[in-house]
Design a protein around this nucleic acid. Structure first.
Length: 278
DNA sequence: AGCTCAACCTGGCTGC
DNA sequence: TGCAGCCAGGTTGAGC
C-alpha cells in the first residue's frame, strides 16, 4: 500500500497505540525480507520502550531506548495494531508484542524491511539508507523558493525523464509511482520531458503539485484512521480519485482527451497528451 | 557520475 | 478448469 501518504497515515495510526509502550516479545515469522531481519531483534528489543515514531521518506522510525527500529513497507507491506490474541495470518512476517497489543507487519511480497540502528552507530541521518534521501516534501527545505531550487538545481544536466527523476527520490522523497503521475498531471508537465529541461516556473508548479497531491492523499487516508486498530481492509488508499493513474484510454477529467499509458524505467506512467507538455 | 535494467517475491488477473 | 504469461504501490546494485 505504501507511498509517502500511506506511510504517514500508518505512522499516525500506530502512534497513539504504540508510543510509550514497552516490548514484551518479538516474533520473526519469516525474516527473509528485503534484507534479513536481524535474528538478535527479539533479545535486543525485549524491555525497550517506544519513545517516538517518526518518518523519513518511506521509512518509519521507531525510536527505542538504545536505537531506532527502521521499518519499510516495500510494495505490499501493511502495519497494523491488533490484539495479541489474534492468530497470525499468512504473509505476516514480524510481530512486535506489547503485552495485550501487537504491531504486525504483513507483507506478501517481502520487499519490506525491518532494520536496527543503534545510537552507537551514530545519528539516524547517517544511516546509509537514510543519508541518500532527498528532502522531505513538507519540510522548510521544500517550501516556497527553497522547493523550486531543490528541483531546479538537482535536475540540471540530467537527461533522465522527469518522471524517473522524481521517482528516484534524490531531490525530494515520497513521490511514488501513482502520485508521481498525478503530480505531473497537476503541474501540466509531460512525464517524458527531460528533467534538465525543466524551467523554474515548471519547478514551481511541480513543487506545488507535489505538496498538494501528497497533502490531499494524507487527508484522504487520515479519514479512515479511526478504523486503524483491527481494520480488515486497506487503509486510506485510493479513496482519492486518480486523475490519470490507471486510466489509459479514459477521458481526461479536464479536457476529455484519452489518457495515455507509457512505460518508463520498467514502471507505468499515465498522462494527458493535451494537458501535459514537454 | 549518470543511466538502464535485472533482481528481490508473491498473488491476482487475463487470455488461450 | 488449468495454466502460462503478465502485471503490481519500491529500491538496490551491477554493468556500461
Amino acid at each position: 500500500m505504501p507511498e509517502l501518504p500511506e506511510v504517514e497515515v500508518t505512522r499516525l495510526g500506530i502512534e497513539p497505540h504504540i508510543q510509550g509502550r514497552t516490548i514484551s516479545d518479538v516474533k520473526i515469522l519469516d525474516g527473509r525480507l528485503r534484507w534479513p531481519v536481524p535474528k538478535t531483534l527479539p533479545r535486543l528489543l525485549l524491555g525497550q520502550t517506544v519513545l517516538a515514531i517518526s518518518r523519513r521518506g518511506k521509512y518509519l522510525l521507531l525510536e527505542m531506548d538504545t536505537g531506532f527500529l527502521m521499518i519499510h513497507l516495500g510494495m505490499t507491506g501493511v502495519l497494523r495494531v491488533l490484539s495479541s490474541h489474534e492468530k497470525w495470518k499468512p504473509h505476516d512476517r514480524v510481530v512486535f508484542i506489547f503485552n495485550e497489543l501487537s504491531l504486525r507487519l504483513h507483507d506478501p511480497r517481502k520487499f519490506g524491511a525491518v532494520l536496527w540502528h543503534s545510537f552507537q552507530q551514530g545519528p539516524i541521518e547517517s544511516h546509509p539508507l537514510i543519508q541518500k534521501l532527498g528532502v522531505e516534501p513538507f519540510s522548510p527545505e521544500f517550501s516556497g523558493s527553497n522547493a523550486i531550487e531543490v528541483l531546479y538545481k538537482n535536475s540540471r544536466k540530467r537527461s533522465i525523464a522527469v518522471k524517473q527523476f522524481l521517482l528516484a527520490g534524490k531531490a525530494v522523497v515520497g513521490v511514488g509511482n501513482i502520485y508521481c503521475s498525478e503530480c505531473l498531471f497537476e503541474a501540466g508537465i509531460h512525464p517524458a520531458k527531460a528533467a534538465g529541461k525543466l524551467t523554474r516556473p515548471q519547478c514551481e508548479r511541480l513543487a506545488e503539485s507535489i505538496r498538494a497531491v501528497l497533502t490531499k492523499a494524507i487527508q484522504a487516508g487520515g479519514s479512515s484512521l479511526k478504523d486503524f486498530v483491527n481494520a480488515d481492509g486497506d487503509l486510506g488508499y485510493f479513496t482519492m480519485k486518480a486523475k490519470v493513474y490507471d486510466r489509459a484510454g479514459e477521458p481526461c477529467r479536464a479536457c476529455k482527451t484519452p489518457i495515455k499509458h507509457l512505460v518508463q524505467g520498467q514502471r507505468s506512467s499515465y498522462f494527458c497528451p493535451q494537458c501535459q507538455k514537454r
